[in-house]
């Protein structure tokens, strides 16, 4: 917000350095950061947004002490299996999940603070050959795991204190699920993308697989980030991290595709290209804004509904950016 006020976006395109570097979290250990996220944290009657950072063997919780200054509240040490990613549970307080594994996710753990014992803890949620995982509102976690014979999809609900409350099995599609995304405004709907480049829709309450819809050859190797239901259509934000780069216009970082769940037909609505011919590396979507790290080492931000790049943060003096996350 501060950067936007300082550097209004020009109508003819992004303005360089319209994102401003505000603060740095200095990790005194030499281990490399693998992921970053945020979590709502309640302490002493006050609920505030805190930052979570993960290295291969530890996950740290940081609180704002003063402008530009962050202090480490706690570190969970997870030394047996490397941490691969943080799995935030949106709008949830005092709970965050992490995925651990070697090349693929082998287990998911819940990190929490227990007021009963006045201590920070972690507990095992799930093990297996986990292909995709997402945290949903209302303390829910959905994951897909694969054995040689079959694919299993499961939603776990947590209690406020982090106990496992309920487990719901979801009907798996034939193809491996590569990513999940919540449908904004529809608590019981979930979308996913598959290795066969389809978008699938589930009813989370019943576990039913409602529809499988082909994304099409124009949108290869799609990964879903977010979905919105509006006017009888399902708008899905996709990225294509493994797509071959087109020489003419580069590769779009994000696309918005409209699906009619009744007929399974789809139409491209908007695409968001990097400001220069660079490729998308990884990114994050929040509401209708996308942010991604590009091969140039810059971070770009888009208004996904207008397909317009609204801000660029060039690589810093210390090197290329590696991750971009909304909070």
């Amino acid at each position: 917000d501060v950067a936007e006020q300082l550097s209004p976006v020009l109508p003819d395109g992004p303005r360089e350095e319209s994102l401003q570097f505000l603060s740095e979290l200095k990790d005194s250990s030499c281990s490399c950061a693998v992921d970053v996220s945020t979590v709502w944290w309640a302490a002493a009657g006050c609920r505030e947004l805190r930052v979570v950072t993960a290295s291969e063997s530890a996950v740290s919780l940081w609180e704002p002490l003063a402008p530009d200054c962050w202090g480490r509240v706690h570190t969970w040490h997870l030394t047996e299996i490397p941490v691969i990613q943080i799995v935030p549970l949106p709008d949830t307080c005092n709970l965050v999940c992490v995925a651990l594994g070697e090349l693929e996710i082998g287990e998911i753990r819940l990190l929490l603070y227990s007021s009963e014992t006045d201590s920070f803890k972690h507990s095992l949620v799930k093990t297996g050959n986990i292909k995709a995982v997402v945290g949903l509102k209302d303390r829910r976690l959905v994951s897909s795991s694969r054995t040689m014979q079959e694919q299993q999809l499961e939603m776990v609900s947590f209690s406020e204190t982090g106990g496992s409350k309920d487990r719901q099995t979801l009907m798996p599609p034939e193809e491996t699920v590569t990513a999940f995304a919540e449908v904004e405004g529809m608590r019981e709907a979930l979308v996913g993308t598959t290795a066969g480049n389809s978008v699938v829709v589930w009813n989370l309450k019943t576990g039913q697989l409602l529809r499988k819809m082909q994304v099409g050859y124009s949108y290869p190797a799609s990964i879903c980030h977010r979905a919105y239901s509006d006017s009888g259509l399902l708008f899905v934000v996709l990225s294509h991290p493994h797509a071959k780069e087109s020489e003419s216009c580069g590769s779009p970082a994000f696309r918005v595709v409209a699906f009619n769940p009744r007929t399974g037909r789809s139409a491209g609505v908007m695409f968001s290209c990097p400001p220069c011919p660079r490729r998308y590396l990884e990114g994050d979507v929040w509401d209708t804004a996308g942010a991604a790290v590009l091969t140039s080492g810059a971070v770009a931000v888009w208004d996904l509904l207008r397909g317009r790049c609204t801000a660029v943060l060039p690589p810093g003096p210390a090197g290329h950016w590696a991750l971009a996350r909304w909070a």
Binding site: V201, N203, Q208, L209, L210, S229, G232, N260, R265, A267
Partner: peptide
């Protein structure tokens, strides 16, 4: 997007598909 591209649209698609899909 028009109905000619995407076919007939239903505002209650989620409830309708849930009623039709196998349990």
């Amino acid at each position: 997007c028009s109905e000619s591209d995407l076919g007939p649209i239903s505002l209650n698609w989620f409830e309708e598909l849930s009623a039709e899909a196998p349990p």
